[in-house]
Amino acid sequence: MQLDALEISVVGGGIAGLAAALALGRRGASVTLFEQAAEIAEVGAGLQISPNGLRVLRALGLEAELAARAPRAHAVSLRRGEDGGEVLRLDLARIGPEQGYHFVHRADLVDLLAAAARAAGVRVRLLQRVATVEDGPRTRIVFENGAEHRADLVLGADGLHSRARHALGSAPPARFTGQVAWRALLPNVIGQPAEARVLMGPGRHMVVYPLRDGRTLNLVAVEERSRWAEEGWTHADDPANLRAAFAGFGGDVPAILGALDKVHVWGLFRHPVAERWHGRSVAILGDAAHPTLPFLAQGANLALEDAWVLADALARAEDRASGLAAYQRRRRARAERVVGAAERNARRYHLRPGPVRGLAHAALGLGGRFAPGAMLAGFDWLYGHDVTAEA
């Protein structure tokens, strides 16, 4: 269908919304993006762009700019939390030179996408807080200040508490996983190279990797506990709580925890993947459709995949209805598989001391030493997926 005949509105100025706006704007659609904040920006945090997400950025012409801002990752190292000893090392060079893996500051990726979207003609309207989205032949957006806007198609990229998702029916309640996560940025006091280190311990684990020029470390630490913590990334916590939770970890962890001066904490909740991803003229993507736990580092990558497939499906379709149906058909099973795999990963990281943990670590070590290619091949379904080449 001719996208230049469509007036499209995107709700949400994060990675999913900006990538969708850019992909559609590049195809000639008239796109307006509504963001509730006073500027297109992100709180400080790191994320990992794996080969499946990088392919989308490459297709959008942004790979070189990403590489200039984000170091290429060399390895993933699984380590024992108690002493920092390495259990398994995955050499990311083995996935091939064309399948890069990058550590990027979230704000840098948002800036990159926002600049490209504006250059593609996307109109960005700030301080726009959406109250309701009403599906119909032309979807109606009602803002908290009483203003209204209608469009041929509204895309909900407005995250966990998406107004657009409610337009498609009420979402099932989320389930607290019994885990909370801290995140922080701190100086790279241990001189860690461009690798992601996963430090595993009983009922908890920590992930650290460098950002930008390598002088900053991104930290995400997860602990199993029954005490509930609210969802969201903006809840400040006392660094002493994080230090206490990981007091039994050794190796570089004491130095890392000693360098903390500010942390945030949030509860990890399991949200079902949406049953319906679209209505008559509403579609959802990113966390609005499939919030995922952080144990595969795939939230941003899934958002990029969604954005590309949505634009591609609409461009290939004869009409809006068939394009939206194709989008859901191409994405839902993929999202369910990634979300499920992420949830299972936490259990592997949190094994208690004993025979099961010993055998699991021994098997990982032997596999990494004698069959490193086979270990990485286990991720082919994830990293080898290429939405830009789908027929």
Rank of each mutant, 00 (worst) to 15 (best):
R163V: 12
R89H: 07
P71R: 06
A151D: 01
S77A: 15
D135M: 03
R140D: 02
D83W: 11
R165I: 04
P172C: 06
G159P: 08
R79W: 04
R118C: 07
E134L: 09
V124M: 12
F143E: 04
R80A: 12
V122R: 08
L88E: 13
V87Y: 04
F176V: 04
R125W: 00
H102P: 00
E148N: 06
G100P: 08
A68E: 13
E144C: 08
R140L: 15
S162I: 07
A164F: 05
R118W: 01
H74E: 15
E148L: 07
R129T: 13
A114D: 13
H149D: 09
A131D: 15
V104R: 00
H74L: 14
A167C: 06
L127D: 15
E134G: 00
R163F: 03
V154I: 04
R118A: 13
G136T: 03
E148H: 06
V110M: 12
R175V: 15
L90G: 07
A120D: 06
V76M: 15
G136F: 04
L109T: 04
L168A: 06
S77D: 13
R165M: 07
G96I: 05
P97D: 13
A171S: 14
E144K: 11
Q99H: 15
G146Q: 10
E65W: 00
A115L: 07
L113H: 09
G146A: 12
V76Y: 09
R125A: 11
R163M: 10
R175P: 00
A164P: 01
G85T: 12
Q99G: 08
G81S: 13
R94F: 01
E98C: 01
D152Y: 02
T132V: 11
L78F: 15
E148Q: 14
V122W: 07
L112T: 04
L90Y: 04
H105M: 03
E82G: 11
A151Q: 02
D91H: 06
V154P: 02
D158G: 09
I95L: 12
G85V: 02
P172S: 08
A75M: 08
H161F: 14
E144G: 06
R150D: 01
D152W: 02
P137Q: 10
V130T: 11
T132F: 02
L126A: 06
A147R: 14
E134M: 05
E82V: 15
L112Y: 05
E148C: 12
V142Q: 13
